[in-house]
Simulated assay, not measured.
Amino acid sequence: MTDYRRLYVKGAMWFFTVNLAYRYQSTLLVDEINLLRESFRYVKERHACTINAIVFMPEHLHCIWTLPDGDADYSTRWKLLKSYFSRGIPKGEHISHSRTKRQERGIWQRRFWAHLIISQKDFNSHVDYIHWNPVKHGQVKYACDWPYSSFHHYVSRGVYSKDWGHSGEFVIDGGE
């Protein structure tokens, strides 16, 4: 068994990627967008954090959170969010033997990707990545056409122009 360790920094800003268990050929997150948004509200009411940027894709999501000073526990927030969402989905998904033994649903991948944001450049790059994601995955031609994103909030604040992120015109650092 792998000794899996996470970094925890109180009051830090984090970029996360969270995936469905069976990521490909699923649209569950956008099909159940109201439940997903409700899940985020549920968690924020119990464990405050700032959501700096977010995008909900059909089968995964990316977001940036800032935790309150003195608080480093993002894992509890993700556990609550995944549990709340899962309880709202009718049973019927494939559940592996190991998940059955642990009495787990088969909706989410067990783990998630967490990256500590270390600078303004790092933050800007991840916010761009989040808002570019629907274009990158071929969901829309323009970032503004994807309704499940904080992109529109950033446009209203003047951070982006509405036509930012046209397919074929934007390249994220590193060529991704």
Results as ranks from 00 to 15, higher is better:
Ala48Leu: 05
Ser125Arg: 12
Ser86Leu: 08
Thr50Met: 05
Leu36His: 08
Arg46Ala: 03
Ser83Ile: 00
Pro90Lys: 09
Asn34Thr: 03
Met13Thr: 15
His131Arg: 04
Tyr24Ala: 11
Glu93Val: 03
Lys101Met: 14
Gly92Gln: 10
His60Cys: 07
Ala48Asn: 09
Gly11Cys: 09
Tyr22Asn: 12
His97Lys: 12
Tyr8Val: 05
Lys162Ser: 14
Glu59Met: 06
Ile107Ser: 07
Arg87Glu: 05
Phe56His: 05
Val43Tyr: 00
Tyr74Ile: 01
Trp132Tyr: 15
Val127Gln: 11
His131Phe: 00
Tyr74Trp: 12
Gly175Pro: 10
Gly175Arg: 09
Tyr24Cys: 02
Gly174Ile: 01
Cys63Tyr: 14
Val30Asn: 11
Trp146Lys: 05
Tyr24Phe: 06
Leu28Glu: 06
Tyr84Ile: 00
Glu38Tyr: 04
His115Gln: 12
Thr100Val: 13
Asp122Thr: 04
Tyr154Glu: 14
Leu36Thr: 07
Asp128Phe: 00
Ile117Gly: 07
Ile130Arg: 05
Val55Cys: 14
Val171Arg: 11
Met1Gly: 15
Met1Phe: 02
Arg6Tyr: 02
His62Phe: 00
Asp173Ile: 05
His47Ala: 06
Asn34Met: 05
Glu176Arg: 13
Leu61Glu: 12
Leu29Gly: 06
Tyr4Met: 11
Thr17Ile: 15
Lys79Asn: 09
